[in-house]
Design a binder for these strands. Structure first.
Lengths: 208, 208
DNA sequence: TTCGTATATCACCAATCGGTGACATATTTC
DNA sequence: GAAATATGTCACCGATTGGTGATATACGAA
């Protein structure tokens, strides 16, 4: 007896998950410009109408994707794996290690980079979510480890400047090799930047 | 005698200029995503086929636009209008003034901001051009005013970090209000950042 | 087994995209 | 003047976009 082989199990959960993870794949592969109903459905191997049925459209799907993700490094990761040990290291070294961890945590997250690039262009539920998480996380981390009573320097502003600089250079390294004469695609270039940050930290802390 | 009124003078130069400036308008108004053959032609009040005839397509038009523009601040502007006076001010103040001028020069150039945002996403003739001009200009400026013989600090890396930070925060301010607890849309927020930069400069120069 | 419902497929829509060929009219050249 | 050419208009193309209604089929409950 010939039985028509069933190619796909019908399961809303599985299909939904497929769609959600397809968003991630495309984001990492093609960037945010690739994220469209047709492309996502194709990537998921699913009909696009299901995006509307299950998520009320692409916006809803992207939102669902945003809620799944661990896009932003945790405090633990930024501290280097040991919060207590981190809290006990001298401020200067703490800042240096933090910068190093921040750089690496972004470098190894192409999906996060893609969302950060998206943020530059427009806002949506996903970028808002990353925004929210980052702002919350960075402020928590700051208050945990970098509160300074000395009023002579604005450590918060300085740290955020460093964070902004690193974010920019990470994003630019996706498209260019040289920024201000520094090779932002090579290990050496980033070592140089890291040392620059260390010099800033050292200099600034002398003023405290 | 009834004479059919001539609505448009036929002049390739004028039409070409219209198309080129339409690119700028759209870029400032809608961002790079708005730059397409149809939209540009509509904005210019001209048939899109002329984009192909006169510029061999949109890419060519965008390239032509890139060659027209003064997108990047000149050395004179970054120095504050007087190169000699600038060269005579103490290094610490020179760096501080440079940062302030850099910030303002970007803040008042929405078109440049739009291209910088474009650079984050993809490369084309226009972004390549801005890239080239900036790299050249910034290196020239650096070698003119900030060459440091003292080997203890890497002034180049530090300046580029500051430039990257400012670029990032300018771009982010188009979409968000708060970055790391700092209001990047208000005068006060930028004053705070400027002071942070000043503290960095002061601290770093002490190490020289 | 039967039947209702959840799930998925498919065909199709209007709008927009980049791109082009045929034609009309203004301008220049002879 | 007429002819040649430069310039501009218009209608249309195929591909792709986001979005939907009708229909087929698998699954769970009876």
């Amino acid at each position: 007896m010939i039985q028509k082989r069933q190619l796909k199990v019908r399961d809303r959960q599985i299909t939904s998950r497929r769609l959600i993870s397809a968003v991630g794949s495309i984001l990492a592969k093609k960037g945010f410009k690739g994220v469209g109903v047709n492309a996502v459905a194709r990537e998921a191997g699913v009909d696009k109408v299901l995006i509307y049925r299950y998520f009320n459209g692409l916006e809803g799907l992207v939102t669902a994707f945003g809620k799944e993700g661990d896009f932003w490094p945790s405090s633990l990761e930024l501290a280097g794996g040991d919060l207590y040990k981190f809290s006990q290291t001298p401020l200067e070294e703490r800042l240096s290690v933090f910068a190093a961890n921040f750089i690496r945590s972004l470098q190894k997250r192409p999906m996060t980079q893609a969302i950060m690039a998206w943020e530059i262009i427009e806002t949506n539920e996903l970028t808002d979510e990353l925004e929210r998480v980052r702002e919350e996380s960075i402020m928590e981390f700051f208050q945990m480890f970098f509160i300074n009573d000395k009023t002579k320097i604005d450590l918060q502003a300085i740290i955020m400047l460093m964070g902004a600089a690193v974010s920019y250079l990470i994003l630019r390294s996706r498209n260019i090799e040289l920024y201000g004469g520094i090779d932002i695609r090579s290990e050496q270039g980033w070592n140089r930047l890291q040392e620059g940050i260390d010099q800033i930290v050292k200099g600034v802390l002398k003023s405290v």
